[in-house]
Design a binder for these strands. Structure first.
Lengths: 193, 193
DNA sequence: CGTCTATTTGAATGTACTCAAAAGCGGTGG
DNA sequence: CCACCGCTTTTGAGTACATTCAAATAGACG
């Protein structure tokens, strides 16, 4: 298993010693995935934290009318959006889908507890991960209420330069909080400029 | 100083022993505030985490055009929205304003480090606080893109039953992501029913 | 009481949505 | 290899939700 990506990610927040790295590697489970695969479905038990080792994923909420609302995209080096199901809730609300072939590193729930009990550096690491995630969510929220759709789309393409190759436009529209039809019109208008 | 509220809040996540409580109390600073007071202004140094011991606060972002965008309201027993400035960033983007008289408990930045270094229960506590905050932000985001303004307003009044007594409507409008004028019309329509 | 700000109201406008139909695109099987 | 199927994207017309601007009214505070 190649744990270099997750190790370098963690080392941006806390310094791990050999013992901690060894333990981490002993509990991570490599999990390859194929394009289009539904890795976790909304309503299922949330059994793992998912670190993206390679490839692209997205996490979305399917409402009662069957409409999907994209919460987050995740590239290699990110935790999948459904990281949040390590809460008390045993079931996740969100579906996680592969946008191309790739590999996850799974951190099973029981192992999470071991990790937190025995190595409090990981507690800190995840505190910082969540903390930064909250900050990003706040910014995204402010953006979504200050900028019109066109600006938000431009911001998206700047932030996720490669994502458009992998994601159907309707999911980008969903992420931006607009309809696919309207995104199509926004793009047309931008191309004419 | 009355630390009963913060202790009972923390005890929902981790059990503190006497030593830990004593230390916590030794580093918290009571800070009374008056209605309308700007407790922290956007652009200033973020020097404290702020726990609301009594009263109501709100946290907002003022954009370059001078428009305010409310991120969060906070009642007694909550951490103020600007909790997020315990990150690496030395300055906060957000302004925190008192909506009535009340009292904060301040947790200064240097004391945060002591807390995290010496008592890893607090690390866990804040991990869980952030974790739950992320979950709430995600839900709020999905709501704001699935429900029309009228629904969001009803949800708001149900979620924060007393808040309307303290908050100017224009700030509720801002929190909901609509203009004050439109909120006024929404309310009128609801009253006619 | 007067001033300042918040709220209400109305008219005109704009942004984004719905619905429906056509065009494009990718994969599968004959 | 081409034809067909299903799904995504585009396009257009009509509509709805929400905004802007302006003016009138109401409330809060000194």
């Amino acid at each position: 298993m190649d744990s270099s990506l997750i190790r370098s990610n963690i080392s941006r927040y806390v310094a791990l010693d050999d013992r901690e790295i060894e333990f981490l590697e002993s509990i991570l489970i490599p999990r390859p995935f194929k394009q289009g695969e539904l890795i976790v479905k909304g309503g299922e038990q949330a059994r793992y934290l998912m670190f993206v080792n390679s490839g692209y994923l997205m996490t979305y909420y399917s409402d009662k009318d069957g409409a999907d609302h994209v919460i987050q995209f995740a590239a290699a080096g990110w935790w999948a959006g459904d990281i949040y199901s390590l809460s008390k809730e045993p079931y996740t609300l969100y579906t996680t889908k592969a946008l191309c072939d790739g590999e996850l590193l799974l951190l099973p729930r029981p192992a999470q507890h071991q990790l937190f009990e025995n190595y409090n550096k990981f507690e800190r690491y995840f505190r910082l991960v969540f903390q930064n995630s909250v900050i990003k969510h706040q910014l995204r929220f402010v953006e979504s209420h200050t900028q019109p759709a066109e600006q938000r789309y431009l911001l998206f393409t700047a932030t996720y330069p490669n994502m458009e190759k992998y994601v159907a436009q309707k999911y980008i529209a969903s992420y931006l909080g607009i309809t696919p039809e309207f995104l199509s019109k926004v793009r047309k208008k931008l191309l004419q400029k």
